[in-house]
């Protein structure tokens, strides 16, 4: 399986670390909302089909990526930086690659 990192291009899956369900919302660190923390830590969407998930390119540029991957076919339909293109260097690099 190849993941096309927006910064580094297509790389083997062994360069990436899986961080799971990307639909979870991390509560504000000061939040004392028990239900929100419980949902963040334990509840997962687990679809058979397109899955919105977080990977880190830990063996490459170390960027955190939001990947939409089909859990039945492993087909990847989109890869983006988790925090958007906030880094100008990353944005320039991404624009270089059609």
């Amino acid at each position: 399986m190849l993941i096309t990192c927006p910064y580094c291009g297509p790389r083997d899956v062994i360069e990436f670390t899986y961080q799971g369900d990307g639909n979870r919302e991390r509560p504000d660190p000061a939040s004392q909302n028990f239900e929100a923390w419980n949902a963040y830590v334990y509840d997962r969407l687990n679809p058979a089909g397109d899955h919105n998930e977080i990977w880190q390119h830990s063996g490459g540029c170390r960027a955190h990526l939001r990947v939409v991957r089909n859990t039945l076919t492993h087909e990847i339909s989109s890869v983006a930086f988790v925090r958007g293109d906030h880094s100008s260097a990353a944005r320039r690099k991404a624009e270089d690659k059609p």
């Binding site: 799971g20 949902a39 334990y42 509840d43 997962r44 687990n46 679809p47 058979a48």
Partner: peptide
């Protein structure tokens, strides 16, 4: 392994499970 799929049919969207 199909727990997520079957529970979604029952309207339970999230579970403490990953397949």
């Amino acid at each position: 392994g199909s727990t997520g799929r079957v529970m979604q049919l029952a309207g339970v969207e999230t579970m403490p499970i990953e397949s």
